[in-house]
Amino acid sequence: MNCEQIQKLIHAHHDGELDVANTLQVDEHLADCPSCFNTARQLSALRGTLQNAELRFRAPASLRQSISAAVEQAARAERPAPVTRPWYRQPGWAVAAVLLVACLLTLQMSFRRGDDRLLAELTASHVRSLMATHLYDVASTDQHTVKPWFDGRIDFAPPVKDLRETGFPLLGGRLDFVDGRPAAALVYGRQKHFLNLFVWPSASTSPAELRATQRNGYNVLRWSDGKMNFGLVSDLNEGEMREFVREWSVK
């Protein structure tokens, strides 16, 4: 390389931005060329001058406070009624896309009966849990790990049962939101299928019969034991899902 080419690279060399091959070439040239070496020396001298910490302006404390206050005010003005939905804050397009779908679904649902809305909500939550690869907040096959995990995270103690022996191993649990309130979602497996069992406290004390419905290709089974409402959602066939419910109820 001649001096002209070296002069074009010498700043990048000085800034450590050259690849190894070019760095070596510049190094070699600098060892032989007093003029280019002088340029490099001056760059170092300039950096030495600019290293003085006093050259960097620091934000006055008053500015920091004033920004903090302004941001807090803006935050209050923007969203007066926050809803706590931890998994919604997961970054990523999948969640954003699913949220959009969920919003559209919710919008559409508001014109329908509440029952229908619940059905849609359960299905949407199930799909969302699979799409956002956010199946569990706590991944454990041990019911004695999953159950205590909900302590303090939710205002009720959901029943957690392990149905491994009957071919429905427990995989984990997470917080979800059903029917306008926090719910526990228990995740079970069946071969390659996932089952989401949503559990939330029942408003009425009388048990409700098992009802099976289909929605968007998913089976939804709902029932109540007089204390808790249950919603089981999966792409598994209805027969096997009824088997799950039977095992759950007798265990």
């Binding site: 302006f57 934000a59 935050a75 926050p82």
Partner: peptide
């Protein structure tokens, strides 16, 4: 929501000196 501003305080405000330095120059 207060969470958002707390999060902002933690993530962004540590770089206030850099921001001010650039603006000031």
């Amino acid at each position: 929501m207060p969470d958002a501003s707390a999060n902002f305080d933690q993530t962004i405000l540590p770089h206030l000196d850099a921001a001010y330095n650039l603006a000031r120059w």
